[in-house]
Design a protein around this nucleic acid. Structure first.
Length: 593
DNA sequence: ATTAGGG
DNA sequence: CCCTAAT
């Protein structure tokens, strides 16, 4: 098949929807898995109830409004009972508890509420905390936010009695306006509904625009072992009478698909049956392999297309100018349509924003490891210092168990430093803190005030450094961590002297020998470093002392550098023969020349 | 893996 | 110091 390849190395991301990413998974997965049953029940309750109400709305203006709720609740309970049976049957037939972990779960509070036996009343879990009770119905990796469950399979049309053999077969739809009259305010205010399917092995993250893209490839089906959520459903528009505007339209996230055991996001991934393959290599670093099990909840954030910052009082404000997709490798067949190409790019872009990536914060190039540090403690309270702020990308916990970079064999086994190249080893050994070299944001304190327009802003309290990690600075560092630029280590005079001595004897061009001879124990000095240093030494010796910088190198050494340089330029070292003796060199082209 | 040379 | 091409 003829394949066209495109490299979107600098895809400007500034126009990406500036939608805050929702906060999900406030409960660690390990915890969530403890309460599968309970969560499932509550999830189903909600789904059923809402569906019920919607069903009523579509039908004739049915029953008395007074009884509407009660009936709905009644039917919902019937539904729940049925589902519960099914679910319990499922559980009973399951092989192990862990396999059930992929089931539906709820957020902690809800789960705990449920545990306390609040029953199936869909309102129970949230009763007294309307504001912060986003209703998450999680059933695995598919996350639907700001979506309204419109239907719980087809069986609802029979007046609420349900076909639901697999409770997971929940079809969710986009946040098109849905008639929610009759739905209790407690629900209406909670416009976030999250469905998740952890069974799935894909790792997708989709967004949909204000209007759902009905033409989206229906061939992509998110199908887990036990449940199937069809993506086409996700993008399927609902009948809209425009009666409900209350839904937060700014939220454009439609479906978020988040796998727990996805093979690898960075592998070539088949996106559809059209043979589209996206290759994304998302800034995975070795450190992240072993150290990125934190901050799972820091996933929302604001994308901004402009940058500006200022510091006033105790608050640090900044925005990210733009986000770039560092590298996107896409293969599509020639027969691919432009539309499919667009979608492919969109998916690849979305994939890069997958929750597998978390943010690291660097200040002045030093990674801030202690999340409990305040900004001021890290030196970020002053306006002048904001430029020192940087972000790095780290893979999230979900990426820990997968090969991080299938294209790069080194990345697959980064822990064995003994097998690393000399250069890489130098990083590991000498820099055991594995400090990330900063990826400085393009911050300019002189930028205009960002509050003048509608640009999204992230306001970070100086007392809440954790919030920094929320900013989705998704730009992929050009270097992965293993190849992070090493810290600068100026050569000491002693080292220079050793280098000069070695070169005098061995000549230029035998840097490996020089390394072995005089720098064998300095793992951070590679033969490339020595070669480079010699280069700079020659240059330094060639310029006036006033032009030199750094720690002064004794002129005597510089003279020897020039002498050796001259000599070895005229007397290239024999390829296999013994090196010439330094004394010979001095005799033939001594320092006096 | 080394070397050479540009950035 | 990094990156790449060429051995």
């Amino acid at each position: 098949m003829v394949v066209k390849r495109m490299l979107y190395s600098d895809f400007d991301f500034s126009s990406f929807p500036k939608a805050p990413r929702s906060i999900r998974r406030k409960v660690p997965s390990s915890q969530r898995r403890d309460d599968v049953d309970c969560g499932m029940m509550r999830a189903i309750d909600l789904l059923a109830y809402v569906a019920e109400k919607l069903q009523e709305e579509e039908g004739e203006t049915s029953s008395n409004s007074i009884n509407a709720f009660e009936e709905g609740y009644y039917n919902q309970n019937r539904l729940a009972g049925k589902i519960k049976q099914e679910h319990q049957a499922n559980l009973a037939s399951s092989k192990s508890p862990s396999e059930n972990a992929s089931g539906v779960s709820l957020e902690q509070t809800q789960v705990s509420d449920c545990k306390r036996g609040r029953g199936l009343n869909p309102l129970a879990g949230c009763g007294n905390k309307k504001e912060d009770c986003d209703f998450h119905v999680e059933s695995g990796g598919v996350t639907v936010e700001t979506c309204v469950v419109n239907n719980v399979d087809a069986g609802l049309e029979d007046g609420g009695l349900i076909s639901l053999k697999d409770p997971s077969q929940l079809h969710v739809q986009c946040p098109e306006p849905v008639h929610l009259d009759g739905v209790p305010n407690e629900y209406r205010n909670r416009s976030k509904l999250v469905c998740r399917d952890d069974d799935e092995s894909y790792c997708e993250y989709y967004k949909c625009k204000d209007k759902c893209n009905k033409s989206y490839s229906p061939s992509l089906t998110w199908a887990g072992h036990r449940r199937a959520v069809h993506r086409s459903k996700c993008f399927e528009g609902t009948k809209t009478d425009g009666s409900v505007k209350a839904l937060d339209r700014k939220r454009k996230l439609c479906c978020r698909y988040s796998p727990r055991k996805h093979e690898t996001l960075h592998k070539k991934r088949r996106l559809s049956d059209k043979g589209l393959v996206v290759n994304s290599d998302g800034g995975i670093t070795s450190e992240s392999v072993t150290n990125s099990t934190e901050k799972r909840e820091s996933e929302n954030g604001v994308l901004s297309d402009a940058i500006g910052l200022h510091s006033e009082d105790s608050r640090v404000k900044f925005s990210i100018k733009s986000l770039r997709i560092p590298e996107l490798f896409i293969e599509v067949p020639e027969t691919a349509t432009v539309g499919s190409l667009k979608r492919t790019v969109m998916e690849a872009v979305s994939a890069l924003l997958d929750d597998g990536i978390s943010i690291g914060v660097t200040v002045q190039g030093r990674k801030v490891r202690d999340d409990n540090n305040t900004l001021s403690q890290t030196g970020l309270s002053c306006r002048e210092n904001l430029g020192n702020l940087g972000f790095t990308l780290e893979p999230g916990p979900e990426k820990l168990s997968v090969p991080l970079c299938s294209e790069n064999p080194v990345m697959s086994k980064p822990t064995d430093s003994t097998k690393l190249s000399e250069r890489s080893a130098a990083n590991c050994v000498e820099n055991n803190s594995q400090e990330l070299v900063p990826y400085q944001m393009d911050i300019s304190a002189d930028e205009q005030q960002p509050s003048s327009d509608s640009r999204a802003m992230v306001s970070v309290s100086a007392l809440e450094p954790e919030a920094l990690a929320i900013v989705p600075f998704k730009e992929k560092p050009k270097r992965t961590e293993l190849s992070q630029r090493r810290i600068r280590r100026p050569f000491s005079v002693t080292e220079v002297e050793a280098l000069v001595n070695a070169v005098e004897e061995l000549g230029t061009g035998r840097w490996r020998d020089v390394k072995l001879r005089s720098f064998e124990n300095e793992s951070h000095r590679t033969y490339v470093d020595l070669k480079d240093k010699w280069k700079t030494l020659v240059h330094t010796a060639s310029i006036s002392p006033q032009q030199r910088r750094g720690e002064p190198v004794p002129q005597e050494l510089l003279d020897r550098v020039l002498a050796s340089h001259r000599y070895w330029s005229q007397h290239p070292p024999k390829q296999n023969g013994k090196h010439q003796d330094a004394a010979t060199m001095v005799t033939e082209s001594g320092p006096s020349m």
